[in-house]
């Protein structure tokens, strides 16, 4: 499944009863364009971001959402070198949580 299908499926799972009109209000994408997207038209970057933002809003509380957005802003400002360091740090945190059983990811992930 490509990323577009996956994000739309995810959106529909999270908002099964949301009308096209409400989706248009939430995403800022007009209704006829949304109709085309739901029928397979390729999304633009801003449209991906609008869907992702809706999904993040759903999965996070207000302060968490702000924090996630702050992280994304920080990531976009980092140099290649800083990003590499940050990536290794995050990988360490995830791996240590797997070792201590605080992450639900299974044993096979530990071998990565």
């Amino acid at each position: 499944m490509n990323y577009q299908n996956s994000i739309i499926k995810n959106y529909r799972n999270n908002f099964p009863n949301r009308s096209l009109r409400v989706t248009a209000q939430e995403t800022g994408i007009n209704m006829s364009r949304l109709h085309r997207i739901f029928n397979g038209a390729e999304m633009k970057l801003q449209e991906y971001e609008a869907f992702e933002k809706c999904l993040r809003k759903q999965s996070c509380g207000g302060s968490q959402l702000k924090f996630v957005e702050r992280i994304l802003e920080g990531l976009s400002l980092m140099s290649e070198k800083e990003l590499s360091f940050f990536e290794v740090e995050i990988n360490h945190i995830v791996k240590l949580k797997q070792f201590t059983g605080e992450s639900s990811i299974g044993q096979s992930a530990l071998a990565q």
């Binding site: 791996k95 070792f99 201590t100 059983g101 044993q107 530990l110 071998a111």
Partner: peptide, 15 residues
């Protein structure tokens, strides 16, 4: 902890 050691050993063996 034993569980932590087991997980670490599993990872080291897999590698």
């Amino acid at each position: 902890e034993q569980k932590v050691c087991e997980n670490v050993l599993y990872s080291l063996m897999a590698k």
